[in-house]
């Protein structure tokens, strides 16, 4: 610590400001990405051919063409509008859960540093409970504990399954954000609190005007990480009957006669969609981490 402070030319990295905005764009696509996509596509296709039952020797080329079952590729093309709609639904669930979870998580995280010992203990307990439960368990918990509709001042508010799923996913997000926030607040040097106090800031003012703005930067990379994880976890909603991408994939597979050679391409396609969505987020997270690197 003291070394860092002792060199005035190189100020302590923890205190580095949001410097002159060096643009953080969407990760640039390079030829390596292209290569990766080609390899992935070939892999999915070859899995499909490998599982194609050995075809009867066709009498003629023309006959072979007319009777051959639809290729996996054409099946994916045919169903992709439906599947992508399902995927969009996963994204909607993930964004809604992340938003809800972040708002409640910040409240819970602030509760964890409250001056009121009861608020502090309750917030701590809730955080630990929801952080250490399997996500699927929390999803079931939300599904079966929340009634299908609420009566708020005479207005009947229906709670369809997908809304419950959002709540179910928001619970672990809340707990993780709460813990992230607590950690970030604790990582703010004590001197910041002292300086603020000596300038007459109250505790609440210090938290909102001085501590939290500094926490945002520290929390952003792990928060984005959490978002990736929750996005991928949204397929769990298929278990509780929400019609998202995985459910639709299974239905499409069944509609195509459950042919085993379609299994890998269809699920491969689903996985690939998630990859395409989450990989850039992961890349961006890495960049932010490098940029905000707090190590001296």
């Amino acid at each position: 610590m003291s070394d860092a402070f002792a060199s005035p030319g190189r100020p302590m990295a923890v205190l580095l400001p949001p410097r002159a905005p060096e643009p953080i764009g969407f990760p640039r696509l390079t030829w390596r990405h292209g290569l990766f996509f080609v390899v992935a596509a070939v892999l999915i296709a070859s899995m499909a051919t490998a599982q194609t039952p050995p075809a009867q020797p066709p009498a003629s080329a023309a006959e072979a063409l007319s009777t051959a079952p639809a290729t996996p590729f054409s099946v994916i093309i045919k169903w992709s509008p439906l599947l992508l709609k399902g995927f969009a639904f996963n994204i909607v669930i993930s964004i809604a859960a992340m938003t809800l979870g972040t708002v409640t998580g910040v409240i819970l995280g602030l509760g964890q540093i409250s001056v009121n010992p009861i608020v502090r203990k309750v917030s701590w307990f809730l955080t630990q409970f929801f952080r250490n439960s399997p996500w699927l368990v929390l999803l079931f918990f939300a599904m079966f504990m929340i009634p299908f509709q609420f009566n708020i001042f005479g207005v009947i508010m229906p709670f369809p399954d997908w809304v419950k799923a959002i709540i179910g996913f928001a619970l672990p997000v809340m707990a993780n954000v709460s813990e992230l926030l607590r950690g970030a607040i604790r990582s703010i040097p004590n001197g910041q609190w002292e300086a603020a106090t000596s300038l007459g800031f109250t505790r609440t003012q210090t938290i909102w005007q001085i501590v939290l703005p500094q926490c945002v930067k520290r929390m952003l990379p792990p928060w984005m990480n959490l978002y990736s994880l929750i996005t991928m976890a949204t397929v769990l909603a298929s278990v509780v009957g929400v019609t998202e991408m995985l459910t639709l994939t299974a239905q499409v597979h069944a509609a195509e006669g459950g042919r085993p050679e379609l299994f890998a391409p269809l699920y491969g396609f689903a996985g690939f969609c998630f990859f395409l969505y989450c990989y850039p987020i992961g890349k961006l997270t890495q960049r932010l981490e490098r940029r905000f690197n707090v190590k001296t």
Partner: peptide, 11 residues
């Protein structure tokens, strides 16, 4: 009060 570690608000 002024401190040894300056304690400016970095943001």
């Amino acid at each position: 009060m002024v401190f040894q570690q300056y304690n400016l608000f970095p943001h």
